[in-house]
Lab assay of single mutants.
Amino acid sequence: TIDDAFRAIERAIQAENEGRYREALKHFLDGGEMIVTAAEKEASQKVRNLLLHKGKEVLEWAEHLAEWILE
């Protein structure tokens, strides 16, 4: 659900702030994927587009974090 997705993102932010970057990455990926999944089930085109945009933002952040971890 969207609530689960945002809880995962909150955990990711907390982990990132505490320097637990790999854990943060996992939570960002989980949250982003949950948002995209919820968007695919959404009946309203406007809400679907907003959710897809937010999911994409979260997944892009996860990608940047992963690249930073690997440096």
Rank of each mutant, 00 (worst) to 15 (best):
K54Y: 15
T1L: 15
Q45P: 12
N49D: 12
I13V: 09
L70G: 11
L59H: 03
E23S: 03
V47I: 13
G19D: 02
L50I: 14
A38N: 01
L59E: 01
G32P: 01
K46F: 12
A5C: 10
G19N: 02
G55S: 08
I9A: 01
Q14H: 11
A62H: 01
A12G: 15
H64M: 11
A5H: 02
A24W: 03
V58W: 13
V36H: 08
I69P: 02
L51Y: 06
T37A: 15
D4G: 07
A24G: 01
T37L: 12
E67I: 08
K41E: 08
K46C: 14
R20P: 02
A5G: 05
E42W: 11
E57H: 11
Y21I: 04
E67F: 08
I2H: 06
G55N: 03
F6Y: 09
T37E: 12
I9W: 03
E23R: 01
E18T: 04
A8N: 06
A43F: 10
V58K: 00
F6C: 14
A62E: 00
E33Q: 14
I69W: 05
R11N: 04
A66V: 04
L59V: 03
E60S: 10
L59C: 09
E71Q: 11
I13A: 07
R7M: 07
A24M: 05
K26Q: 12
H27A: 06
R48S: 03
L70W: 11
E67Q: 11
H64I: 10
S44A: 08
E42I: 14
D3K: 14
G19P: 02
R20T: 00
E23V: 03
S44F: 11
V36K: 11
V36R: 13
E40S: 13
A66W: 14
L59Q: 07
F28M: 04
L70Y: 10
G32D: 01
R22S: 10
G32C: 13
G32Y: 15
I35P: 01
E18P: 02
A39W: 07
E10N: 08
Q14C: 10
L50Y: 11
A43M: 12
G19R: 03
G55W: 15
L29K: 11
S44W: 12
Y21P: 01
F28I: 04
D30C: 13
L70T: 12
E42P: 02
A66K: 11
E63I: 13
G55M: 14
A38T: 06
A12F: 02
R22K: 11
W61H: 11
E33D: 09
H53V: 12
S44Y: 10
E67K: 10
Y21R: 06
E63L: 13
L29A: 02
A66T: 05
E42F: 10
K41A: 10
